[in-house]
């Protein structure tokens, strides 16, 4: 069986009524930016995947969680108090920046909490040549935008006024073809990723330059 480690909660920072950043002790967990961990509350064995939000340079671990309606684990995690413990396994995952491609323009496309690995990338590598396209329904999902270079961030808010664009991520992409020397990172729902693949395919973009992380 995979070894679970107990990590003490250091605090919880609410971002809006259903999203929050949970901070734990780092322990001896080493990870690469973009990787995820399995987190569960104690007692219990059920766990869910959460991408690490904080950079490996920090001596704590943070995750950004949106409580899923009637979600088993995400609802429980948001009720934790400093001093309580969670059980963590990992890290897992292959959604990492390719060190040989750091000079290429990087396009990060994420939906909702799919912004998390990009937050970790940006906090971990200070001089990245990136453009982050974040797709959300409402302004309240613009999670901690102050952490990004505002000239590199574009938010596509579909159901409210605000943001840089009112279309979905796919529509934005149709009108703004990605340069063929770029690397594209996609994180979010498999439906969104499928659409983006199709659009990039139409733009004759080399699919070997795309990396994906499917949340649901």
């Amino acid at each position: 069986m995979v070894n679970s480690q107990k990590h003490r909660v250091l605090g919880l920072r609410a971002i809006n009524s259903d999203a929050y950043v949970l901070r734990f002790e780092r322990g001896n967990l080493d990870f690469e930016p973009g990787q995820y961990i399995h987190i569960g509350t104690l007692p219990g064995t059920e766990k869910r995947e959460y991408t690490v939000y904080s950079s490996p340079r920090e001596d704590y671990l943070e995750v950004l969680i949106r409580s899923a309606p009637s979600g088993n684990i995400s609802q429980r995690l948001c009720q934790l108090k400093a001093g309580e413990e969670v059980s963590i396994e990992g890290p897992f995952g292959l959604f990492q920046l390719d060190s040989t491609a750091l000079d290429s323009p990087l396009f990060f496309l994420g939906i909702g909490t799919g912004i998390t690995p990009f937050h970790c990338f940006v906090q971990s590598y200070p001089n990245l040549n990136y453009k982050l396209i974040h797709g959300v329904c409402t302004v309240s999902e613009c999670y901690e935008y102050e952490k990004y270079d505002k000239n590199r961030l574009l938010s596509c808010i579909s159901r409210e006024e605000g943001g840089s664009c009112h279309d979905g991520v796919s529509d934005w992409l149709r009108n703004n073809p990605i340069p063929h020397n770029a690397m594209v990172y996609l994180c979010g729902s498999s439906a969104m990723i499928y659409d983006v693949y199709e659009i990039l395919g139409e733009q004759k973009f080399d699919t070997d330059r795309i990396l994906v992380e499917v949340y649901y």
Partner: peptide
């Protein structure tokens, strides 16, 4: 395995 395929229990039991 670190891949995390959605149908597979193996990473949970074989580990990283």
């Amino acid at each position: 395995c670190n891949n995390g395929c959605s149908f597979c229990i193996i990473p949970f039991v074989r580990g990283r």
